[in-house]
Design a protein around this nucleic acid. Structure first.
Lengths: 149, 149
DNA sequence: TTGCTCCTCACGTCACGTGAGGTGGC
DNA sequence: TTGCTCCTCACGTCACGTGAGGTGGC
């Protein structure tokens, strides 16, 4: 049980990469261009250390990259505001000021809606191509049936 | 009417690019790596000439590139057999040998099914992410409603 | 202590973008 | 004939891949 469980044990770059479905090089590159926070306060030459939250973060970046066809700069803009929000949330969550809470929730809603919009557009492109190829398939099947058995 | 109609008039690279939704550079690059037939028997330095069929071909390449996330080499393999088939079809279409016709139709069916499979996989990934983000959206809406108006 | 994974350069690659300088065709 | 689009190098860029040589930590 303890062999497969990741628990809350800190992760090294190779483990993060494997869990998220990519390579160490990609993780380092994302850190280099600022998409990922450079594993904080690390001394030159020392190993990078990550958490489960980073697995989620990287996983989301990869999914959006693959499914939305955005450049990493566009993706960065999309996620930047969102992670800023996550930080603010940690600060303000305890303060219980309903005005702040409402503002944060509204922002979250906006980000989710933007991503959902992009996904819907992508999906409709795919569906269009599916119908097109499906029609061609029907035609081929029809011609085959005309040839008899 | 004759100003907007492309009719069957030959196209130059800029027109092909615009109609297909890309750039001349991309067209030249695809020719360079063999994805597109080098506009045949062109003398060094002379302009490339295309037809409406090329608009379809390039359009399909671009759609598959954007929607399937394949490398151009993988895409090339996917399309190579298909265009070989198209050529064979032109040769054999008149011969009316039902054995050949059945073979060609079977091949066409195979290619279409492979593409449809890839599209279905992509679509289900997108749908998964849509549900995930949709659930988060619901949660945010719920929290907003708890804050009252 | 050994062996694995990690580290930092740094060059290579894929899929084009972007000029530079010159020629083709309505 | 003028002006636009085209031509061919060829270097630049983005998102990493791939060693080379060396150090960190269970």
């Amino acid at each position: 049980m303890s062999t497969t469980s990741t628990g809350t044990r800190p992760l090294r770059i190779g483990e993060l990469a494997e869990l998220a479905g990519t390579t160490p090089r990609t993780i380092r590159y994302y850190e280099e261009i600022g998409l990922l926070d450079g594993a904080s306060e690390r001394e030159q030459g020392k190993h990078r250390v990550y958490t489960e939250a980073d697995v989620e973060r990287v996983g989301e970046i990869l999914r959006l990259r693959d499914l939305l066809g955005l450049s990493l700069e566009q993706l960065s803009e999309l996620l930047e505001a969102e992670s800023a929000r996550a930080e603010i949330r940690r600060e303000y969550h305890a303060t219980e000021d309903p005005k702040d809470q409402r503002r944060l929730l509204d922002q979250a809603l906006g980000h989710l809606d933007r991503q959902l919009e992009l996904l819907a557009a992508r999906r409709s492109e795919i569906e269009q191509l599916q119908t097109e190829l499906g029609e061609r398939r029907q035609l081929v099947l029809h011609r085959l049936s005309e040839l008899g058995s």
